[in-house]
Every structure is written in C-alpha cells, then in structure tokens.
Write a protein that binds this DNA or RNA. Sequence first.
DNA 1: AGTATTATTACGATTTGTTAGTAATTATTT
DNA 2: AAATAATTACTAACAAATCGTAATAATACT
Lengths: 146, 146
Amino acid sequence: MDGQDLKRRMAEFAGMCRQKGVIATHQRTEIYRELAGSSKHPCAEAVFKGVKKRIPAISLDTVYRALRLFESKGVISRCCTIGDRARFDADMGSHVHFVCTRCGRVLDVAGSAPSFLKAPPEAAAMGAVESVRVEVRGRCGRCGKK
Amino acid sequence: MDGQDLKRRMAEFAGMCRQKGVIATHQRTEIYRELAGSSKHPCAEAVFKGVKKRIPAISLDTVYRALRLFESKGVISRCCTIGDRARFDADMGSHVHFVCTRCGRVLDVAGSAPSFLKAPPEAAAMGAVESVRVEVRGRCGRCGKK
DNA sequence: AGTATTATTACGATTTGTTAGTAATTATTT
DNA sequence: AAATAATTACTAACAAATCGTAATAATACT
C-alpha cells in the first residue's frame, strides 16, 4: 500500500460514508486511515495505538464503536480472530489470507485465482451465499526458518 | 454422524492421544465424545453443558483446558468465532463450512470439490501450508424463509 | 500390591476483549 | 447565533477465557 493507493482509498471512504449515511468525523476518518494504511490486518487495540499518535485524546471505545459501525455498513470487514482478538480489513475485495499459526500474522495472498473465492455449488444449495472466506493456515516465511 | 462413526472416532481419539502424549482421562474422553458426536460445532459452553449430563461435577475450566490442549496437539480445531464465542470441530479433515449470518449455525458442506480445499499456489509460496479453511457465509435454508 | 511421583481436576479469583450508560463535546440545521 | 442532533470520552459493566492452587486421580517404581 503506497501513498497513492491510500489516497484513493480515503476518497472511496468519503464516498462510502456519504452513500451509507455515516458521518465521516475526524476520529472515524483517522481510524479508517489507520486500517487502510496498514497491511497487518490489525486488531482494535492496534488501530487504537496507531490513531493515538495523531489524536492523543482518542478513546479505545471510540475505535471499537467505529469499527463496529463500519462493519455493519459494509465499509470494512472483520477478517478473522487470532488468539481472541478480532482482526479487521479495509479491503472489501475478494482475496485470500495467509494466517501464520506461529506468530499470528495475517498476510494478503496476492492474485489468487478466482476459483478459490467462489462458493462451491454444494454450499450454494444450502442457503443464500453472501460471501466466501478463504484462509490458508501455516507457518509464514519468517517463522519457517525455525 | 451415526453411532458407528462415533465409535470409530473415539478409537481414533485414543490413538491420537497415545501418539501425541495426551493422557486420555475420563473427562477429556467425554469432552471429545461430546464434540465428535455433535454436528453443531459447539462452543466451549455448549460442550460443557453436554458433558455435564454425564459428569455432573465437571467444571467449565476443565472443558476450556481440554479444548485448548486438543487444539494445540492437532486433535481438534477451532473452526471459527461466532459472536464472541469460539466454535470447535473434531473433524480435522479438509472441508467447507457454511456459517449462517442470521442464526449462527455452522454447517458442514458435504462433498466439496477438492479444488476448494487446496491452497492457491501463491499462498504455498508464502510459507509452509498446514491447512485451508473455507467458510461460506450467508443465510441458511431455515433462516432463508424470512 | 503399595508407595512415591507426576499430572489433572475443580474451585475461585483474575484477566482481558468488548460493550453499555451517560455527561460533555462537536457538528449540523434553522 | 441558538437549537437540535449526533458523536465522543469517560467510567463502569459484562462475559469469555485464563491462571493459581489445593485436592484428587493417574502413572511409575520397587
């Protein structure tokens, strides 16, 4: 995620908020920026720490509220739970995650074939599919070297 | 899961415990049986309630400890988190889950094509893959009829 | 078999992630 | 600029999960 990408994401954020009736306050904008500017799929606490550098008076509670609001409006997604902390992702496009079972890092798998992101027909027969989540678990490169 | 299947699973459990140095105590055996005998992917509390019928004095803490131990030894897996409760699965084979976003049910998707359970090559390049988890989210048949 | 040793269980108390109530603050409307 | 509505920050609460520990059960040893 370079500066250009982030800029585009922030513009999209403003548009989504307008469209979905979410007031893009200063705090919420910075919370989103923290999430969109990171490739770490951070937990609420990590987002809080990051935003705090720019808005020292922000409260953890506001971060939780904003993340929950964003999620309910489809602006971000709760991508997985590592340990017992929920991790978030500003990228709403279909993609695969690599989750390291040792260090807990969540990495984006670039350019995954679309076949991995379609629901199998047997699942489609079970109900109305809304989304498909593919998570590859294993030991990441950094943890691999024992 | 019929009686025959459960019986086979319990035998496999004994073998896995022996192999992995886990003492198969009475409590642990019943905890595993509760999980393997259910197709509901229960949370810790639900396992506790089930086992309690057979071992009234069992404590919730013992259930948590056993589930954590089993997970760390690869005997069971924590399949997902619904609401804020972790759900568990005794089936360690690759399979797809259908998670109902309305009622929280977690259903097994039978007979999914193996292509859905293979890691994409891009992911395999990122580290040592241990498992692939596919979660289809949507409204289940029961919740579908409004 | 009986004793020593080690591991597990149950209990209670704690910790921790997350949510809720509310007064003060900020943004929006008139 | 005053009034109205929404959001924020604070504190407290809640619930899932964990930890310390004494009692208990299981294993190893002789």
